[in-house]
Design a binder for these strands. Structure first.
Lengths: 195, 195
DNA sequence: ATGTCAACTTGACACGGTGTCAAGTTCAGT
DNA sequence: ACTGAACTTGACACCGTGTCAAGTTGACAT
């Protein structure tokens, strides 16, 4: 940790995230090196593989954004309904910050097993958040009777996928606020027992 | 049309679809040539580019599957509700046949403008189907008041995306029948006015 | 002042996949 | 027997990733 040269490593990571944030299609190792102000080979001194770099960037992003703190309100919500609402909002508002990286990781998951694993990890974490919200609903007796807890989790997880967000946000032109509002409503309709 | 050598061209197209159908990660030009029983260069004699080949394969698939006929029941449904149900079923059951090709096309949409356009075309066609179902609901006064027709179309289109299907089908282990049944229900809850 | 070590640089190269080029082969139609 | 189209073999260029080798720079210790 402290034995590593943080400043160069950090410059690399932030360069990577900057390039990816823009949703730039294909971010090459040389692009990253250039924007970090070092040679392409110096990059390989720090990260021996593109996948490794992307994974490190993902971890770094998690730290910087204090993921746990952002999810706090959802975790401490009293009712299941409140928890669902809060979860959709927290996660939905986190997507814009990670989607570039997510798509880059997704694009290389078929050529690199580590990248696939890192992506799967993160998707699993999101799924856990969905499962917790569903469990809270279930506990309150508010879960719709036509879905098991697992099925409800599957459905919510899929509704909240990065791909769906991207499509609504960019292909359909929804604003971020629209996305959160409409998706919250859609999730409630799909999961909460009819009155 | 008839001036072209159909048999080799056809062998190529079916080889392409066969390889893609399996959801094989990276189907190379040489893989396709080998399974079609010709040399890699002969492949380039027929399709000068990988994108061109994939696009031709997509068109061929549309013909072979008689897309229009499959969508007939949805188009002729009497009520909006019936139309929605039928549309989700028709399209949902078509996804398994095209998803491999769709993902291949999607994977190269950032490196090839023609591939992007071909994919966009097909997605637009799906969106049109969604819009028609929503319009029928709206006509019957059955559309939920908290979504405009456009928003409802956006939402339905996104719920029925290939990515969501892939996630539910493979990551969540849903059967095709499960997918259609649950998705129909979810679409109805999201779009139809509460009683 | 000298030596050493780590971070970094330049420049070359291998590899895999796409696409191109040139020169042959095969064979049906005339 | 000749032509032309479909196809073959084999070489090569390009790009992006990853590797290797040799040199530069500068901080720190002695």
């Amino acid at each position: 940790m402290s034995s590593e040269n943080q400043t160069t490593r950090l410059r690399i990571l932030t360069a990577t995230l900057d390039l990816l944030q823009g949703g730039s299609k294909s971010v090459r190792m040389s692009d990253i090196a250039r924007t970090a102000g070092i040679s392409r080979q110096a990059l390989y001194l720090h990260f021996s593989t593109r996948a490794e770099l992307l994974i490190a960037a993902a971890r770094h992003l998690d730290e910087v954004n204090e993921v746990d703190a952002r999810l706090e309100p959802s975790r401490t919500a009293e009712t299941g309904r409140a928890r669902l609402k809060s979860w959709v909002e927290s996660w939905g508002n986190y997507i814009p910050e990670i989607w570039g990286l997510g798509e880059a990781l997704a694009a290389m998951q078929h050529t690199d097993a580590d990248a696939a694993e890192a992506l799967a990890d993160r998707m699993r974490a999101v799924r856990d958040g969905c499962a917790a919200a569903v469990a809270a609903l279930h506990r309150d007796g508010d879960l719709t009777p036509d879905l098991s807890a697992t099925e409800a989790t599957d459905l919510l997880w899929t509704m909240l996928s990065v791909g769906s967000w991207r499509q609504l946000r960019f292909d359909c032109g929804w604003s971020q606020a629209d996305y959160v509002a409409r998706m919250t409503l859609a999730a409630e309709k799909a999961l909460i027992r009819a009155p």
